[in-house]
């Protein structure tokens, strides 16, 4: 069983060329300003807590520049919390998160689909054009060339025919494609994806996974929260197994072992109201 997985891991752990041969065809969008250095992220003893109860507990380690990492773990393990802390919308109670090489705003975040109002009266094209924000901001003009980019992004995710439909008429998979188009347009160096493939069919998953791999090939740093372990083993070189604290973090094949998974499952989901105060910081 273990040998099987190793075989997978050794076949081009970082390459994306073996899958469809589109490794370095010119991307649909012009690259911005030439700063192609990928950002790295250093976590230094990070704790994020809700009402004194830690959702992420004493996390330390590093996401290497240009790495493609899957964050896995049981519900309530702190996966989404970690993403939000990296993004800067949640403040760690203690510890530091250092992002090197980019501005905090050069982060693209794909929310869990349930966090959006999918009945909002807006067309696919307008939803995707939100990805232009860094270029045009709150008040800047949207030029014809920019709208052309939006149309290209919509076409890249396979929604060209639906561009002018209200998003309320899209299926879950189509809506997720639209969010990926928005992310494509954001052209960020650091990508955070919260359960990007949950409840998607095989074709949509494959198409969107191709996009993720293209981004990886373009030397972007990518962190994705995932639940499908087979998918992680097959496509993600790195993995972090989280159960509030890190159970294992490294090459996916070495992280997702039965022993590690068992240990992660031992994390009890509820918080102990009377848990003693954590002293591990105390000098």
């Amino acid at each position: 069983m273990a040998t099987n997985r190793h075989a997978h891991a050794h076949a081009h752990p970082f390459g994306n060329g073996h899958e469809g041969g589109c490794a370095h065809e010119p991307g649909p969008l012009p690259r911005r300003d030439g700063s192609t250095a990928a950002p790295g992220i250093r976590l230094e003893n990070v704790t994020v807590a809700y009402r004194r109860h830690p959702a992420v507990h004493h996390l330390s380690g590093e996401f290497a520049p240009g790495s493609l990492t899957a964050v896995v773990g049981p519900n309530g393990a702190g996966k989404s919390t970690l993403l939000k802390a990296i993004m800067g919308t949640l403040r760690p109670e203690s510890g530091r998160i250092e992002i090197s090489g980019i501005d905090r705003r050069d982060i693209a975040y794909l929310p869990q689909i349930s966090e959006l109002d999918r009945t909002f009266p807006i067309t696919v094209l307008d939803l995707v054009s939100m990805g232009l924000w860094r270029k045009c901001g709150a008040f800047g003009a949207v030029t014809r060339a920019m709208m052309q980019q939006v149309r290209e992004a919509v076409a890249t995710v396979g929604l060209a025919d639906l561009a002018d439909r209200p998003v309320g008429t899209l299926s879950g998979g189509q809506f997720q494609r639209a969010l990926f188009a928005r992310m494509l347009l954001q052209d960020a160096r650091l990508l955070l994806l919260d359960e990007p493939f949950t409840a998607l069919d095989m074709k949509t998953t494959a198409d969107l996974l191709r996009l993720v791999k293209d981004w990886h090939g373009e030397n972007r740093t990518i962190i994705a929260v995932l639940h499908d372990l087979d998918l992680v083993r097959e496509h993600f070189p790195r993995a972090m197994l989280l159960a509030r604290s890190v159970v294992a973090w490294g090459d996916a094949a070495k992280v997702l072992t039965p022993a590690n998974m068992l240990e992660a499952r031992r994390m009890c989901e509820g918080f102990d109201e009377d848990a003693p105060v954590c002293r591990s910081d105390a000098a």
Binding site: R105, I107, W133
Partner: peptide, 14 residues
Amino acid sequence: ECLDPGFLRAVGGQ
């Protein structure tokens, strides 16, 4: 902000 408040928090400056 109506449609995706998280997005605005992320891109809207700190």
